[in-house]
Computed example of a mutant assay.
Amino acid sequence: MTLLDAAREVRERAYAPYSKFKVGAAVRGVSGRIYAGCNVENVAYPEGTCAEAGAIALMVASGETELVEVAVMADSPTPVPPCGGCRQKLAEFGRADTPVLLATVRGAELATTIGELLPGRFDISHLSGTE
């Protein structure tokens, strides 16, 4: 199974009764294992979970803390990038040159990287010298 196949498959299980906007995401850990997540909405909108966050949580819960590839799929006219919070989450566990494939269910794709999605990212280097 490819990373994009995993994102496509998990997208079908998204819980999106309010927006009807299902998103699937998959990340590949440094081990090569694929971790997938889908968006999970809540009637109190800010309390939902993004697909990317779910995939990362599964990766960490499985014992990995480094991702080497990302795929995100949604039913949209154009590929949908991760929200700002998820861009920071991806940056926490991936490098700036980590490939990210954004795709639609109709086959449109956009290849990018974590660094292109989040230039000037906040990282551990910003914490040095703090007391």
Rank of each mutant, 00 (worst) to 15 (best):
E12L: 14
C86P: 12
S31T: 13
G24K: 11
Q88R: 15
E66G: 00
D75H: 01
D5C: 01
T112K: 02
E69V: 02
P79C: 11
G29P: 04
E9I: 07
E41L: 04
R87E: 06
I114L: 07
T113P: 11
G107H: 09
R33S: 08
E64Y: 02
P119C: 06
L117H: 05
N39D: 13
A44G: 01
E47F: 15
R11E: 06
V40P: 03
M59V: 00
G29T: 08
A51H: 11
E41W: 08
A57C: 03
G24V: 04
P79T: 11
S76M: 07
V105Y: 00
N42M: 06
A14K: 14
A44Q: 13
G48Y: 13
E9L: 08
V30R: 15
K22G: 00
C50R: 14
I56F: 03
L110N: 08
T49G: 00
A55Q: 10
P77V: 01
A57L: 08
F21K: 15
F122D: 02
A103D: 02
A61Y: 01
L117A: 07
R87M: 09
G94T: 03
V80G: 01
A25R: 05
T130K: 15
A103Q: 05
E47Q: 13
T65W: 12
A103G: 03
T49K: 15
L102F: 05
D97W: 03
L67F: 04
G48E: 11
E9M: 03
C86M: 09
R13A: 04
I34R: 13
S125E: 14
L67H: 12
V40M: 14
A108N: 12
E116A: 14
E109D: 06
A16I: 05
D97E: 15
F93D: 12
L90V: 06
L4M: 05
Y45R: 15
A57V: 00
